[in-house]
Simulated assay, not measured.
Amino acid sequence: MHRRRRTALLLSAAIAAAPLLTACGSDAHPGAAAVVDGRRITVGELQSRVAEVRSAQRAAVQDDTQYAQVVANTGSLTRDTLHEMVLDEVLHRTAQDAGVTVSRSEVQRERAGLEQQAGGSKALESVWLQRYGIAPERLDDNLRLQVEASKLATVLGTQVSEPAFWKALSDKSKQLGVDLNPRYGTWDVQKSGVEAKAPWVKDVTAAESQQTA
């Protein structure tokens, strides 16, 4: 009972340790952490995503001292999560306009290949959580984006790491009128991708190199 109560308190403290999330949002968009093409990503949505990651981290790290260190090492989780949420939406909309679709079987193949490299499903979930701050329940959605990024790069005749790819995302970002609440930084599509450590930014080209080797 005491351990369960202590765990709950640690989770609450971890979420509170992130930059303060208030319901006011920006003056232009009350309650919004960001706005993409007129659709608000609410502060509540952002809080929920951060809580998913913190809960997964707590489940993975039983020792209280070690968990506190994990929280300290991921102090920018709230900001990074929001930037990744916006970037993922920009990527998805760019891919849609380019006629890119991703099937469930493609996601399953991507996951199977990564699980083989990582040493199993749980190992892959652990890697994505530790390296990218992706909760296990979001893994398939994230892998769908990874496949989507790879296919979009092919359609554009470039690679994810090349300027042409990021220009397409930058153009779409401007078209969508991305508006970030200033408390979470400023929006720069490529800089946000690197800083948020979105898996598809770095891993897609690496995976392609391995497949063609």
Rank of each mutant, 00 (worst) to 15 (best):
L143P: 11
Q159H: 13
A123R: 04
K151M: 06
R111Q: 15
K122E: 14
A112F: 09
E137W: 04
L139Q: 09
A153S: 12
L143K: 05
G120V: 08
R111N: 07
V127F: 01
D140F: 06
V160N: 01
S126L: 13
Q116W: 04
R144G: 12
R144S: 13
A149G: 13
V160L: 11
G113M: 10
A153R: 05
G119V: 01
L129V: 11
G133K: 12
P163D: 08
L152A: 11
K122V: 08
G133R: 09
Q116F: 05
N142D: 15
L156T: 09
V155M: 07
E115I: 00
S126Y: 02
A149H: 05
G157E: 05
S121Q: 12
K122W: 06
G133E: 02
V160Y: 01
I134Q: 06
Q146D: 13
Y132N: 13
S126F: 02
V147R: 08
L124V: 00
L114H: 01
T158Q: 09
A135S: 12
L139H: 02
V160W: 01
A112D: 12
D141L: 11
K122D: 15
Q146F: 11
V127Q: 05
G113F: 09
S150E: 14
D141K: 07
A123E: 11
G133W: 07
I134P: 05
P136K: 01
A123P: 00
R131I: 02
D140A: 14
T158W: 08
D141I: 03
A135C: 09
G157P: 11
E148H: 04
Q116A: 15
Q159R: 15
L145R: 11
L139F: 05
V127P: 00
E115G: 00
E125R: 00
D141H: 10
D140V: 08
L156N: 10
E110F: 04
